[in-house]
Design a protein around this nucleic acid. Structure first.
Lengths: 159, 159
DNA sequence: TATTGTTATACTCTATAACTATA
DNA sequence: TATAGTTATAGAGTATAACAATA
């Protein structure tokens, strides 16, 4: 079924470079997927020295902001299945980085609160994460990086 | 181990809205993850009516741009394991959307080329994908959407 | 010896269903 | 009757190892 051919277009540089010359490389969804891939490659490596994974960091970051979500609320924020939040929270509790608090008027629910150690580790981790983000956006000016963040914030639906 | 508490911060609106008030919501990696999630929810739905999945569309989009990558090159562009490209290519070949061509000077390699039907379906699919992207960026002006794409293109490493 | 494409399989990750305790 | 959290497990998706053909 294979047919012989003579290549009209050589893949000259890197694969991604080639992609950017094609319609694919101009597609927003492809660009976002590629960027997500880069971040999901680098952030875990950066956090590894603190023995945190990305979700654990995201959890700490969220509750460090002053929220005390229930596990279900946390599941929605992180877009995880509630059953996955169980493991996530368990790991952080075991390390004393968060505690589960009973909610007065609903004894089924468990609110998640950051501890002092949790906050301290969150701050150390943030330095590492920021470094990755700065490396990744090194080709942009500070102003352009802010513009990017701002555009992403405007896109994300708040429903 | 649980402790009682009185919530200082109520999660008032949506979970994402809450996240955006927290340090987490300002983190580039979180914003990108959220956007990726939105796209990976919507694009497959849009493509379903053409019975294409996202990777199949990405493949068509890439080779519609004039490239004739080998399967290995395609694996690099799409950041897939070569073994996954086998299945991907097989599905498209079976539908007559692409063909595998022997490469003159390396008979191990198979170059992937789009067919006329492939190009036609790619064009129909692109309309659907563009619609999703437009919906998602509806809160941005045309100019801002272009700025976003441009910023993403500048970030992605061309190594 | 190394590389492309392929297959079969192991592994990881996620979602699902079923349960308990509350509401 | 519905919901929050939990557990165990099934299912999907991915990576790994081994192979044939070719370099």
């Amino acid at each position: 079924m294979d047919v012989s051919y003579n290549p009209k277009t050589q893949v000259s540089g890197s694969a991604l470079e080639a992609a950017q010359e094609s319609p694919l490389g101009r597609r927003l969804f492809f660009l976002v997927t590629q960027l997500e891939y880069e971040l999901q490659s680098r952030v875990p490596l950066a956090l590894a020295e603190l023995e945190l994974d990305v979700r654990q960091y995201a959890t700490l970051a969220y509750i460090a902001g002053g929220h005390t979500p229930t596990q279900l609320e946390l599941a929605k924020v992180l877009r995880l299945d509630p059953s996955q939040v169980v493991t996530l929270v368990k790991g952080l509790v075991a390390r004393g980085l968060i505690i589960r608090q009973t909610v007065p008027h609903d004894r089924r629910a468990r609110a998640v609160v950051i501890t002092r150690e949790g906050k301290r580790l969150y701050e150390r981790a943030t330095v590492l994460v920021q470094r990755v983000e700065e490396d990744l956006t090194a080709s942009l000016s500070r102003r352009d990086t802010n513009a990017l963040r701002s555009l992403l914030e405007r896109i994300l639906p708040l429903h």
